[in-house]
Amino acid sequence: MFEARLVQCSMLKKVLEAIKELLNEATFDCSDAGIQLQAMDNSHVSLVSLNLRSDGFDKYRCDRNLSMGINLASMTKIMKCAGNDDVLTIKAQDNADNVMFMFESQNQEKVSDYDMKLINLDQEHLGIPETDYSCIIKMPSGEFARICRDLSQFGESVVISCTKEGVKFSAAGDVGAANIKLAQTANVDKEEEAVTIEMQEPVTLTFACRYLNSFTKATALSPQVQLSMSADVPLVVEYKIGDFGHIRYYLAPKIEE
């Protein structure tokens, strides 16, 4: 038996927003530790890794490990039926071929339940080794979203160049060229408005705008985003999810032919 209760179901709505542009379907692996998901997009260029710890939920029970293959368009239809302040309970029996979503209004006067069919998916997991990244950039997530959106008007690729002075995002194309430089913030009132850079070695890498823009669909989950880069390895874009865990996106760099 699997049962997870979440007092504010808006978190799960935001998680779904953050993955549904990259993935059509995904397997949610449920265990005693929590809910995990790892899936590559269709083109195998990017990967989504989601971790929601069991202790973040208001109630969590998972007697046996359970892998739920879910069509994300179907789940989106169901989650649209929930109010942001509804209390959500997800329930599935062991070896079930369906999962139930129950929404209760705060005053408990309205209770809805939606049963969704699970699907069988081929599980493809990538082994991602622990990596000491040369540059770790932390910045406001809204600023990162804005930069990706602005630069995508100029070209298909963004060059991210990090030195200890700051980080530069550049794009070029038919219209011309665009450069956005961010320096480390000297002092800020709010931690979430800070730009910080931990640099061992300077790094310059090129990435597809389209994927970066998809990653920024997670902006609502966290006020800060962390970019981890090393030469010749995928970029990691991480958003913390409050008391639950995180969503990480991995993106293979573009390389010169």
Binding site: M40, H44, V45, H125, L126, P234, K254
Partner: peptide, 14 residues
């Protein structure tokens, strides 16, 4: 123009 690499160039299936 640079070409897009595949993630599986860096990580292996487990």
């Amino acid at each position: 123009t640079p070409i897009q690499n595949d993630l599986q160039e860096y990580y292996t299936l487990v």
